[in-house]
Write a protein that binds this DNA or RNA. Structure first.
Length: 489
RNA sequence: GGGCCGUUAGCUCAGCUGGUAGAGCAGCAGACUCUUAAUCUGCGGGUCGGAGGUUCGAUCCCUCCACGGCUCACCA
């Protein structure tokens, strides 16, 4: 234990010995918060207020002192005067430390230097901090401590507090947007015997009661579609998904996703919904639909650009896939252009669709800075999507890209149970070819389609990624309060 | 998983060519009745991430390990 921690424990022990244990304090009535006092100074001047918060700095100038008190919203200065507080209480207050949590009553005034402050008449130590705070000027820099001990980060960095407040507002705005359109929010299982609905490795866990291996969900899709079958018409689930994959600046093993499904519309309906939903949240929380992200202006104002995958590859890679007829032709093209290393399977096992998708990722993705819908994905990589009328090799699917990153994925939902079963069978073959992320067959889901699912549009949006754009966050860890970390010892 | 970088006082950081460590803030003691990175005087505080190795001698050089950051791969 550090010298400073020992000193604080001694101070605590002394208070406890005097029967004034700060940890025995129960309540404090906060009549006002810091920022509120500053904003309503004219009405509050000379009026009594009661505030509470953490001591962030203590400037002792002899028989007077100034405390910067930090609460939920910001800081307010307290003015302390030895004469008014009495020598005994004033002497005790001088033993309090930066980091301690106090309540203060007094009247609002402006100091000679113009700082709106509370002239304290009564101060109470509500909690003793036994550990000193990070340095007041430089703040907390060490990224490891910031993520592991986020509470320190929140105390020391107002912009971090701001980001997480915005996170809540963004999520609230999204719910509001959907609720206004007649959507029902539902909760689908996190624990399931089959992890399906997306291409990702799941986390595995075990039920003791059922003596059964279970998976944490990787998507909510198949359950939400069951809700559509059940007649809910418009549903969404916003919550955590879990994918047992790599961790980087855009990926955390647990992340927040919204999936929504709307009967009697298709992927074009979802396109409008997607751009309007994001624009709504941006307008509501940031006050604008044109935002700066990492120094680049991003314009979320609808309508967003629409481009087919094939056209994107033509535009950014100069390759015209519309003239490619066979898998063999596509394989030769991949080899010739030198992007066959982008393929996840052996070249000879790749279809034209696999190769088109790889070409898209290789040539086009990074250029999609402004919000763009990439439409019409190959059937073989879209096992839950309806085919395009007149072209069974392609599906009615889009992904939304911003700043070269995928933020959303949507389909005209496949509702033909016979075709769906066939697609799952294809996925099983992919699994046999070594793709351990191929979609797993969910028999009850297919059975639900046999009961009949109306034509439906569905959309999934990565909430953390939206929040990154709306808060100008560089890393996904900056928008997740407690990102996944290894234990540190 | 690969590559690069980092880990020194509670925090932010210095530390040269190898001679067992410094500053600022914070802390402690004192002065100061309008300060706001308050100021002034004095003092204390270190398993230099861990384990080995080289060396007369290692914070420094080498190896391994741990954790973290960036990046590539993986990943919607």
């Amino acid at each position: 234990m550090s010298e400073q921690q020992l000193v604080r424990r001694e101070k605590l022990a002394k208070l406890q010995a005097q029967g004034r244990d700060p940890f025995a304090m129960l309540t404090w009535n906060q009549s006002h918060h810091s920022v509120e006092i500053k904003q309503n100074f004219e009405q509050l001047e000379n009026k009594d207020v009661s505030v509470a918060g953490r001591i962030m700095s203590f400037r002792d100038i002899g028989k007077a002192a100034f405390i910067d008190l930090q609460d939920r919203d910001g800081r307010i200065q307290l003015y302390l005067n030895a004469e008014q507080l009495g020598p005994e209480q004033y002497a005790e207050i001088k033993t309090w430390d930066v980091g301690d949590i106090v309540g203060a009553e007094g009247y609002v005034f402006r100091t000679k230097r113009g700082e709106i402050s509370v002239h304290a008449k009564r101060l109470v130590l509500l909690t003793k901090a036994l550990e000193p705070l990070p340095e007041k000027f430089h703040g907390l820099k060490d990224p490891e401590i910031r993520y592991r001990r986020r509470y320190l980060d929140l105390i020391m960095s107002p912009e971090v507090m701001e980001t997480f407040k915005k996170r809540t507002l963004i999520i609230r705005a999204i719910r509001e947007f959907l609720d206004n359109r007649g959507y029902i929010e539902v909760e689908t299982p996190i624990l399931s015997t089959i992890a399906s609905g997306a291409a990702a490795r799941p986390f595995v866990t075990k039920s003791n009661a059922l003596n059964l291996q279970l998976y944490l969900r990787i998507a909510t899709e198949l359950y939400l579609k069951r809700c559509i079958v059940g007649g809910m018409e418009r549903v969404y689930d916003m919550g955590k998904n879990f994918r047992n994959e790599g961790i980087d600046i855009r990926h955390n093993p647990e992340f927040t996703m919204i999936e929504l499904y709307e009967a009697y519309t298709d992927y074009k309906g979802m396109m409008e919904l997607c751009e309007n939903l994001v624009a709504y949240a941006a307008q509501k929380v940031c006050g604008a639909t044109k935002l700066s992200y990492q120094g680049t202006e991003i314009d979320f104002t609808p309508p967003w650009r629409r481009l087919t995958m094939s056209d994107a590859v033509k535009e950014y890679g100069g390759i015209d896939f519309s003239s490619v007829r066979t898998n063999e032709e596509a394989q030769a093209l991949a080899k010739e252009k030198g992007f066959e290393h982008e393929l996840k399977k052996k070249l000879k096992d790749c279809t034209k669709g696999d190769i088109l998708n790889a070409a898209f990722e290789f040539y086009a993705e990074e250029h999609l800075i402004q919000p763009t819908f990439i439409m019409d994905y190959p059937t073989e990589i879209s096992p839950l999507t309806k085919q395009k009328p007149g072209d069974p090799t392609m599906t009615e699917r889009f992904e939304a890209f911003v700043y070269g990153r995928e933020i959303g994925n949507a389909y005209s939902e496949l509702n033909d149970p016979i075709v769906q079963l066939d697609r799952f069978t294809q996925q099983s073959k992919e699994r046999e070819l070594g793709d351990d992320e191929a979609y797993q067959l969910d028999e009850d889901f297919v059975a639900s389609l046999e009961v009949g699912m109306p034509p439906t549009g569905g959309l999934g949006i990565g909430i953390d990624r939206i929040i990154m754009f709306l808060t100008d966050a560089y890393s996904i860890r900056d928008v997740i309060l407690f990102p996944t970390m290894k234990p540190n010892s």
